[in-house]
Amino acid sequence: MGWVDKLLAARDDRTAENLGDAYMKGDEGLSKNYTKAKDMYEKAIEFGSIEAIYKLADCYKEGLGVNKDISKVISLYEEAGRKGYVNGYATLEIMYEFGSDGVPQDKEKAKEYKRKKCEINPQICQ
Protein backbone atom coordinates (compact mmCIF):
# COMPACT_ATOMS: atom_id res chain seq x y z
CA MET A 1 0.00 0.00 0.00
CA GLY A 2 1.44 3.36 -1.06
CA TRP A 3 1.46 6.46 1.11
CA VAL A 4 -1.53 7.96 -0.73
CA ASP A 5 -3.56 4.82 -0.07
CA LYS A 6 -2.52 4.87 3.60
CA LEU A 7 -3.72 8.46 3.90
CA LEU A 8 -7.03 7.63 2.21
CA ALA A 9 -7.56 4.65 4.52
CA ALA A 10 -8.32 7.16 7.29
CA ARG A 11 -11.37 8.30 5.27
CA ASP A 12 -10.65 11.92 6.16
CA ASP A 13 -12.34 14.40 3.81
CA ARG A 14 -9.69 17.11 4.31
CA THR A 15 -6.84 14.72 3.52
CA ALA A 16 -8.52 13.52 0.32
CA GLU A 17 -9.26 17.10 -0.71
CA ASN A 18 -5.66 18.16 -0.03
CA LEU A 19 -4.44 15.25 -2.15
CA GLY A 20 -6.75 16.44 -4.93
CA ASP A 21 -5.23 19.90 -4.66
CA ALA A 22 -1.72 18.42 -4.74
CA TYR A 23 -2.49 16.42 -7.88
CA MET A 24 -4.10 19.50 -9.44
CA LYS A 25 -0.97 21.59 -8.89
CA GLY A 26 1.72 18.92 -9.07
CA ASP A 27 2.65 19.59 -5.46
CA GLU A 28 3.78 17.65 -2.37
CA GLY A 29 5.95 15.34 -4.47
CA LEU A 30 3.04 14.28 -6.69
CA SER A 31 3.04 14.75 -10.45
CA LYS A 32 0.31 16.94 -11.89
CA ASN A 33 -2.53 14.60 -12.79
CA TYR A 34 -6.01 16.03 -13.32
CA THR A 35 -7.70 12.63 -13.43
CA LYS A 36 -6.27 11.70 -10.04
CA ALA A 37 -7.20 15.14 -8.71
CA LYS A 38 -10.79 14.55 -9.79
CA ASP A 39 -10.73 11.10 -8.19
CA MET A 40 -9.46 12.58 -4.92
CA TYR A 41 -12.18 15.24 -4.93
CA GLU A 42 -14.76 12.48 -5.45
CA LYS A 43 -13.26 10.60 -2.48
CA ALA A 44 -13.35 13.77 -0.38
CA ILE A 45 -17.03 14.20 -1.26
CA GLU A 46 -17.66 10.57 -0.31
CA PHE A 47 -15.97 11.30 3.04
CA GLY A 48 -18.11 14.42 3.60
CA SER A 49 -16.30 17.42 2.09
CA ILE A 50 -18.54 20.19 0.77
CA GLU A 51 -15.69 22.29 -0.63
CA ALA A 52 -14.60 19.33 -2.77
CA ILE A 53 -17.99 19.47 -4.52
CA TYR A 54 -17.08 22.98 -5.67
CA LYS A 55 -13.61 21.88 -6.75
CA LEU A 56 -15.06 18.96 -8.71
CA ALA A 57 -17.38 21.42 -10.47
CA ASP A 58 -14.29 23.43 -11.44
CA CYS A 59 -12.82 20.27 -13.01
CA TYR A 60 -15.93 19.88 -15.17
CA LYS A 61 -15.97 23.59 -16.02
CA GLU A 62 -12.37 23.56 -17.21
CA GLY A 63 -12.27 20.01 -18.58
CA LEU A 64 -9.54 18.92 -16.15
CA GLY A 65 -9.50 15.14 -15.86
CA VAL A 66 -13.00 14.97 -17.35
CA ASN A 67 -14.84 16.22 -20.41
CA LYS A 68 -16.32 19.68 -20.02
CA ASP A 69 -19.94 19.36 -18.96
CA ILE A 70 -21.82 22.55 -18.14
CA SER A 71 -24.91 20.75 -16.83
CA LYS A 72 -22.69 18.85 -14.37
CA VAL A 73 -21.00 22.13 -13.41
CA ILE A 74 -24.32 23.78 -12.61
CA SER A 75 -25.55 20.72 -10.70
CA LEU A 76 -22.39 20.54 -8.58
CA TYR A 77 -22.29 24.27 -7.82
CA GLU A 78 -25.96 24.08 -6.80
CA GLU A 79 -25.24 21.09 -4.57
CA ALA A 80 -22.35 22.92 -2.91
CA GLY A 81 -24.59 25.95 -2.35
CA ARG A 82 -27.45 23.85 -0.93
CA LYS A 83 -24.99 22.35 1.53
CA GLY A 84 -23.89 25.81 2.69
CA TYR A 85 -20.84 26.51 0.56
CA VAL A 86 -21.56 30.10 -0.50
CA ASN A 87 -19.10 30.05 -3.42
CA GLY A 88 -21.34 27.58 -5.23
CA TYR A 89 -24.16 30.11 -5.48
CA ALA A 90 -21.77 33.04 -5.92
CA THR A 91 -20.16 31.41 -8.95
CA LEU A 92 -23.54 30.61 -10.51
CA GLU A 93 -24.62 34.20 -9.91
CA ILE A 94 -21.61 35.49 -11.85
CA MET A 95 -21.97 32.92 -14.62
CA TYR A 96 -25.60 33.89 -15.23
CA GLU A 97 -25.04 37.62 -14.68
CA PHE A 98 -22.46 37.78 -17.47
CA GLY A 99 -23.33 34.73 -19.55
CA SER A 100 -19.98 33.01 -19.09
CA ASP A 101 -18.55 29.50 -19.30
CA GLY A 102 -21.21 28.25 -21.70
CA VAL A 103 -24.15 29.54 -19.63
CA PRO A 104 -26.48 32.01 -21.36
CA GLN A 105 -26.91 35.38 -19.70
CA ASP A 106 -29.99 35.32 -17.48
CA LYS A 107 -30.33 38.23 -15.06
CA GLU A 108 -33.28 36.62 -13.26
CA LYS A 109 -31.33 33.45 -12.51
CA ALA A 110 -28.40 35.61 -11.40
CA LYS A 111 -30.70 37.41 -8.94
CA GLU A 112 -32.00 34.09 -7.63
CA TYR A 113 -28.48 32.80 -6.97
CA LYS A 114 -27.57 36.11 -5.33
CA ARG A 115 -30.59 35.73 -3.03
CA LYS A 116 -29.53 32.20 -2.12
CA LYS A 117 -25.94 33.35 -1.58
CA CYS A 118 -27.15 36.11 0.75
CA GLU A 119 -29.29 33.66 2.73
CA ILE A 120 -26.15 31.68 3.53
CA ASN A 121 -23.99 34.70 4.34
CA PRO A 122 -25.89 37.98 4.70
CA GLN A 123 -22.68 39.90 5.54
CA ILE A 124 -21.36 39.60 1.99
CA CYS A 125 -24.51 41.20 0.62
CA GLN A 126 -24.60 44.36 2.71
Score class of each variant (00 low, 15 high):
residue 1 M to S: 11
residue 1 M to V: 14
residue 2 G to L: 04
residue 3 W to R: 10
residue 4 V to G: 02
residue 7 L to N: 05
residue 7 L to G: 10
residue 9 A to H: 02
residue 9 A to I: 02
residue 12 D to Q: 09
residue 13 D to A: 15
residue 13 D to G: 00
residue 14 R to L: 12
residue 16 A to E: 04
residue 16 A to R: 09
residue 16 A to T: 02
residue 17 E to A: 05
residue 20 G to E: 07
residue 20 G to D: 03
residue 20 G to L: 03
residue 20 G to Q: 04
residue 21 D to I: 14
residue 24 M to H: 07
residue 24 M to C: 00
residue 24 M to R: 06
residue 25 K to A: 11
residue 28 E to H: 13
residue 29 G to A: 08
residue 30 L to S: 05
residue 31 S to N: 12
residue 31 S to W: 02
residue 35 T to H: 10
residue 35 T to W: 00
residue 35 T to V: 15
residue 36 K to M: 12
residue 37 A to G: 01
residue 40 M to A: 12
residue 40 M to F: 06
residue 41 Y to S: 03
residue 41 Y to K: 09
residue 43 K to L: 11
residue 44 A to W: 06
residue 45 I to N: 00
residue 46 E to T: 09
residue 47 F to E: 11
residue 48 G to D: 10
residue 49 S to C: 13
residue 49 S to Q: 08
residue 50 I to N: 14
residue 51 E to V: 13
residue 52 A to N: 04
residue 55 K to V: 02
residue 55 K to D: 14
residue 56 L to T: 08
residue 56 L to H: 01
residue 57 A to N: 08
residue 57 A to M: 01
residue 57 A to V: 10
residue 58 D to R: 06
residue 58 D to C: 03
residue 60 Y to S: 00
residue 60 Y to A: 05
residue 61 K to F: 02
residue 63 G to L: 08
residue 63 G to N: 09
residue 64 L to C: 00
residue 65 G to T: 05
residue 66 V to Y: 09
residue 69 D to Q: 01
residue 73 V to H: 07
residue 75 S to M: 12
residue 76 L to H: 07
residue 76 L to E: 06
residue 79 E to P: 01
residue 81 G to P: 09
residue 81 G to N: 06
residue 81 G to H: 06
residue 82 R to F: 06
residue 84 G to M: 10
residue 85 Y to W: 13
residue 88 G to N: 03
residue 89 Y to G: 04
residue 90 A to H: 05
residue 92 L to R: 05
residue 92 L to G: 00
residue 94 I to G: 07
residue 95 M to G: 04
residue 95 M to F: 14
residue 97 E to T: 14
residue 100 S to R: 14
residue 100 S to D: 14
residue 101 D to L: 05
residue 103 V to G: 02
residue 104 P to W: 07
residue 105 Q to G: 09
residue 106 D to W: 07
residue 106 D to M: 03
residue 109 K to P: 00
residue 111 K to D: 15
residue 111 K to A: 14
residue 111 K to T: 04
residue 112 E to S: 11
residue 113 Y to I: 04
residue 113 Y to G: 07
residue 113 Y to L: 05
residue 114 K to V: 00
residue 115 R to N: 12
residue 117 K to H: 05
residue 117 K to G: 00
residue 118 C to N: 12
residue 119 E to S: 13
residue 121 N to D: 15
residue 122 P to E: 13
residue 123 Q to V: 13
residue 125 C to S: 06
residue 126 Q to C: 03
